[in-house]
Design a protein around this nucleic acid. Structure first.
Lengths: 271, 271
DNA sequence: TATTCCATATTGGTATTACCAAATTGGCCC
DNA sequence: GGGCCAATTTGGTAATACCAATATGGAATA
């Protein structure tokens, strides 16, 4: 485990491969979206400018006709782009002009563009992201324990034991772990948490990809997590399971934070 | 405290007045939005039809031209409406047609329309909503304790003591409590949680309003909460504070759930 | 009969033009 | 200087036209 390898963050429904440098998916990164629409392009450019603070809060955006001229497009495309940004609650469109609103009052959907704003994501923001994901995952786990059937309980334990064995053989278990946590989400059956997870996943996936070096604590922390999960599920002990997840995410956050900080040259301020 | 009164749910940034019957805001309920745009109207109608399951997953939506004819509008308005629904990830628009996706894969922004779908909101969904809000509020509280200054700590305690006094005089403290929890969110300064809260707030506010009867446990549970918060903040004990919030939300969830269940005639299934 | 392939019709994506209503703006009047 | 009114700007919508990508259905093929 000394060789550098990919560090995966296993979340509710999120498996993000963390890399040293982040790259936007507007490249040929993701197979789909090779042919973005004009309105999507315009929305992306305007969104970036807004998030970079090139407009003051309350300030008016250029008129649709001006924007159409600037992007050499029709007003229709510009209107669709503005409509999308309005749905993020970053602007407010009214007859007379569109005005900028505060990022702090916007939608969670701006998280992705915000993370992808700079070459490297803001360590603090990533940390907050992981912290939030941690508590939601814990909620899923607790809830799953209270509602799962005997069969489900048994199946989960079997999967955990398989992962523990695999880990003992120095195999990667990240995908299995991610799937396992997804299963907890399925069993817990909390639509609200699932929808939030969908948004966070979308934001993280569509915008950025991480790579990271292997940290030394990976193997042992994973083993602790797996054993804790197994214990908690076998005993139907929500506190135990939750604690295991919390400790795991705690270590993960620390590792990712230090990784991002250490290689960040120009750190930007967090809103 | 025997008289019926409004029961307020105090959340991170959400103060929702819960009523027996829910009402959509398309009436003159909220002062703003008295003049909804055509595209917004179309989006609302289509969104409702989709959420009601009038289209199967994978099925094709009528073409933009057909929809334009149906709503007696131009294609532009229809396109904007579809673009908005696509942002909810409820449909996928491609040349050839727009296809329905699963609600379970959509955005958190569908929560509001989902809650407002029937005359009365789904008790299970509301319960999940409150459960989720509970853990996020607890996270805010824990975080706030770790980062707050001495001055902030003192100010928070003073406000809590004021609320405790007010409660002893049978006064309503719901607004103050809501503001207090908002302050915890401000201090904790977790943008991710804040953005999620924004979305949940928007969904709850813009779509529905609750009224409810006063439950007997309100006064004592509020008092327990206030004292627990005071204790936790004074001792900088995150566990204590979190536990107080958890217990409060637990009682709140139970009360709201029973209230909604008892008066629900036709309960609909949860996805 | 089942499969593959291709021409055709359908559909979304965009640009253009025009008109209306609401908000902004600037100048005028008090 | 402050308030009022008209001209301008701006968003909201409709209608039309054209292109490219997809879907569709029938014909040719195995």
């Amino acid at each position: 485990m000394v060789l550098p390898k990919v560090v995966q963050i296993c979340l509710l429904g999120v498996s993000s491969t963390m890399i040293k440098s982040t790259t936007l998916t507007n490249e040929r990164c993701s197979g789909r979206e090779a042919n973005p629409t004009r309105s999507a392009e315009i929305a992306k450019v305007l969104l970036t400018e807004i998030l970079r603070g090139q407009f003051r809060v309350g300030e008016r955006l250029p008129s649709e006709r001006d924007l159409a001229a600037r992007f050499q497009s029709g007003r229709g495309a510009v209107r669709e782009a503005l409509s999308q940004i309005e749905q993020l609650r970053l602007i407010e469109i009214n007859p007379g002009g569109a005005r900028i609103k505060s990022i702090r009052d916007s939608s969670i959907a701006v998280l992705g563009p915000l993370l992808a704003l700079d070459e490297k994501p803001d360590p603090l923001l990533v940390d907050q992201f992981l912290e939030t994901f941690s508590v939601l995952t814990q909620l899923s786990g607790r809830r799953a324990i209270t509602v799962m059937s005997i069969d489900q309980q048994h199946a989960l334990v079997v999967r955990l034991e398989a992962m523990i064995s695999a880990l003992a053989q120095k195999k990667f278990v990240h995908d299995e772990l991610r799937t396992f946590l997804e299963s907890l989400g399925e069993i817990s059956n909390n639509l609200v948490v699932r929808l939030i997870g969908n948004d966070l996943k979308t934001q993280l996936f569509e915008r950025m990809v991480f790579k990271g070096r292997q940290t030394d604590l990976d193997e042992e922390s994973h083993l602790r997590l797996l054993k804790g999960l197994k214990n908690g599920i076998e005993k139907s002990d929500g506190d135990l399971l939750s604690l295991s997840l919390e400790e795991y995410f705690q270590e993960l956050r620390l590792g990712v934070f230090q990784l991002l900080r250490s290689e960040n040259v120009g750190k930007k301020e967090l809103l």
